[in-house]
Amino acid sequence: MTVCAIEMKTTAPFTIAADGSYAARLAGDGEALYAERWTLAGPEPYVVPLPLAQPEEADSELLPLADGRVLIHRRVAERHAFALLYPTGAAAGPRTGELQLGAVGPEQGEDVRVRLLPPSPDGRGAFALAVTDAGTTVWRVAGGGFGPEQVARIPGRCSGGVWLDRVGRLLALDRELEGTTKAVAVDLGRGGEVSPLLQITETSDDRLLLADPDSGLLLLRSDAPGEHRLGWGVLGSSLPVRFPECLRLGDAHPFAVQPGQALMPETCGVALRLPGGGGGPGGSWESIGLWRPADRHVFRLGAPAGWLGGTGLWSPQGRLHLPYATPEVPCGIVGMTLPVSPPPPVRLDPVPPAPTRPIPLQQAPL
């Protein structure tokens, strides 16, 4: 397969459902924005516009559910409103249905920052993170009773959001507390019980970026090595967190991990969004890095034309699917496969590795 790199323009976030069945984004020109749902399950992807009488604001968030509905989060004055959008058939043509779910607002005049968490692995629920100076609240905004439901209250200011299981119960968040940021696990099935997840050193900032529940592979960013570095570990393993030299890639961000590699984290494909280095003027083009923990190097490929940057989905068979949109192809998927790594060179005079001190990786209760 041939891909080419282009200079990327800023695009609205593109969110893919956990099972890869649907995706959603804001589409349109200028201020005439509307929700757009992509159907990805099937031989060819296709798009369904979901416009309403009023255009959407540029800061609205979308999240697709496994049943084909699209959750939308809107800022309405000081409150954050949630609704479900879905296509309906009518005699005059297709229309967009809307089911209001309620809103989350500030308490006692607090400034609250609300954003949607990544799609829940079960495909039915949707969750949002509300952060104030007093702490963080996790809200279930779809899939529970009618209206937003508070499911966890966490001391400290939280960011991030990575699911650790396949049922939408264990959620990892990056919690800032007393000047240090550590990833913690939140058990939504136990009233929001919080447990340590990453504890590389006492003073380091340790953030979780991605996790694969099948293999236990964790992708993280930490300043424990003396600077902010990408690293990887395995949930529950006694082996140290590793910071490969090949992952010293500046602001590179992993966005997809290959599923289905049970108990084999070293074989999981990882896709990274790499800033610059794509060959454009001044090295401004984005590119994609493909890597697996067993490798000692990153395969760098040009981003496909029209790539909806920072998104993609691995198949269990090791094929990465990237969404793109161009004037000629408004809804497309391009695939690429992680190349086979060459075998390592054979040393005639092997040198024993220098001893290292293991860095503990704490495990959330499963």
Rank of each mutant, 00 (worst) to 15 (best):
V3W: 12
E7S: 12
K9R: 15
A12T: 11
F14D: 04
A17T: 06
A27C: 09
G28W: 07
D29K: 14
A32P: 00
E36R: 10
R37N: 01
W38Q: 12
W38C: 12
A41D: 14
E44W: 12
E44S: 12
L50F: 04
P51R: 04
A53M: 11
E56M: 14
A58T: 13
D59P: 04
E61N: 05
E61D: 14
L65S: 05
A66D: 15
D67L: 08
D67Y: 10
D67E: 10
D67N: 15
R69E: 07
L71M: 06
H73T: 03
R74T: 07
R74D: 08
H80F: 08
A83R: 02
L85D: 04
A91V: 07
G93M: 05
T96G: 02
L101F: 09
A103H: 07
G105M: 03
P106K: 06
V114Y: 12
L116Y: 08
P121Q: 06
A128P: 07
A134Q: 13
G145A: 14
F146M: 11
F146S: 14
G147P: 11
Q150A: 15
Q150C: 08
R153I: 13
P155T: 10
G161K: 04
L164K: 10
L164A: 06
L164I: 06
L170D: 03
L171K: 03
D174M: 01
G179E: 03
T180C: 02
L188C: 00
L188H: 00
R190E: 15
S195E: 10
P196M: 03
I200E: 09
T201Y: 02
E202G: 15
T203N: 09
D205S: 14
D206P: 09
L209E: 12
L210F: 00
A211D: 04
D212P: 05
P213K: 10
P213W: 07
L219T: 02
P225N: 05
H228L: 10
W232D: 01
G236L: 02
S237Y: 03
L239G: 11
V241N: 00
V241I: 14
L249N: 01
G250K: 00
C268A: 13
G269A: 04
P275N: 01
G276E: 09
G278W: 04
G279L: 10
G280Y: 02
G283P: 05
S287V: 00
L290K: 09
P293A: 07
A294C: 03
R296Q: 14
G306H: 04
W314Q: 11
W314P: 09
S315R: 13
P316S: 08
L320M: 02
H321S: 10
A325F: 03
E328C: 01
V329A: 07
T337W: 04
V340D: 11
P343R: 08
P352C: 07
P353W: 06
A354Y: 13
Q362I: 08
Q363C: 13
A364P: 07
P365N: 05
